[in-house]
């Protein structure tokens, strides 16, 4: 028996998270290059903006899902929660005729409240996240239909509402760069949440909970309280997604939402966040969401049949996760 040599931690060129981000980022670049070469129609301002616009809602949802997944949980309700908050905005703005800021606050508050409920079910009542959020997913889907009377709620009385997502503040300043507000909101939110994850207590506990929940508890941290807070924050972010999609469609579509949670989770996973919790990043998630919409858009531009688009998306998800596993196994 030889003694294990005592050495300081292996210095690594890049943190493991950074490696995965690099991998995902490289894949994104390759996809962009490939589609640009394959079709002259791909790399056009209008199309790139369309891709970004298509990413905005899924990207925001994926940010919410990232927070929860880093804690080692899962949130299946992000899609229908998004719809629910859109409907709430519709009720406030169209049914009650209140001012736009009230509708925005109401949607985000409703999202946070629902997240708070999910979090409480999970942290206090110890219902497994999968079940608790599956229940919430159905509850919110049903409530959206009930509240809206199963009909879309249009925002025609609030003419500036569509501007929230489809207008372009940047475009007003720099006409050559008409990036829609929805996309800017996604990127700004990503920066904020990335900062929250890496620089604040809440973020720290996100990783800590996903890494070893019992250890967090034994360290005297109010683990349950923080978990509820994280789910509530994720819920609030879903509220932003709700506003974005409602604004883009100029309507709250009550039947929409189911299935969107899977797109969000797929983006998170492609971005290298581990479903086991403890590791992940917002940058990765954004890249993951971009990969998904670039892929879909590119395949459409190449006129690949719709059936095959679905197949390719599935293959990419599995390949991304497998590549991540290989990398991690190598890292030991």
């Amino acid at each position: 028996m030889t003694a294990t040599p005592i050495a300081t931690a292996k210095p690594r060129l890049l943190a493991s998270g950074a490696q995965q981000k690099l991998l995902a980022f490289a894949s994104l670049i390759v996809l962009l290059l490939f589609f640009s070469l394959a079709s002259p129609n791909f790399l056009q301002t209008a199309n790139i903006l369309a891709i970004l616009q298509a990413t905005s809602v899924n990207g925001v949802l994926a940010i919410a899902a990232t927070l929860v997944i880093i804690t080692g949980g899962i949130d299946l309700s992000v899609g229908t929660l998004m719809t629910f908050t859109a409907v709430i905005a519709g009720v406030v703005l169209t049914f009650w005729g209140l001012a736009m800021p009230v509708g925005i606050l109401a949607a985000i508050a409703a999202g946070a409240a629902c997240g708070f409920i999910s979090g409480s079910l999970i942290a206090r009542m110890k219902i497994p996240p999968f079940i608790a959020t599956l229940g919430m997913m159905l509850i919110l889907k049903g409530l959206s239909l009930v509240i809206s009377g199963t009909k879309p709620i249009y925002f025609n009385d609030t003419p500036s509402f569509p501007q929230l997502s489809t207008g372009s503040l940047i475009g007003a300043l720099v006409p050559a760069l008409p990036v829609p507000n929805g996309v800017m909101i996604l990127f700004i939110l990503a920066l904020i949440i990335s900062w929250v994850l890496n620089r604040t207590t809440l973020g720290r506990y996100c990783f800590a909970l996903g890494s070893n929940e019992e250890a967090v508890r034994l360290s005297g941290v109010n683990a349950d309280g923080w978990k509820v807070a994280i789910y509530a924050l994720a819920g609030g972010i879903c509220g932003i997604a709700g506003l974005l999609i409602a604004s883009r469609l100029n309507s709250a579509q009550p039947a929409l939402g189911q299935g969107y949670e899977l797109d969000a989770i797929a983006a998170v996973v492609i971005g290298g966040t581990s479903l086991a919790g403890g590791r992940g990043s917002i940058l990765g998630t954004i890249i993951g969401a971009l990969i998904m919409s670039v892929l879909l858009n590119g395949l459409r531009i190449l006129s690949v049949a719709q059936e095959w688009q679905t197949v390719v998306t599935g293959v990419i998800i599995i390949a991304a996760v497998y590549a991540d596993m290989l990398r991690r196994r190598r890292a030991g």
Binding site: A208, V216, L218, G278
Partner: peptide, 14 residues
Amino acid sequence: ALMPDLTVAQNIFI
């Protein structure tokens, strides 16, 4: 009772 994904210092001051 450590959190493997966090750094040493982060673990100590959790």
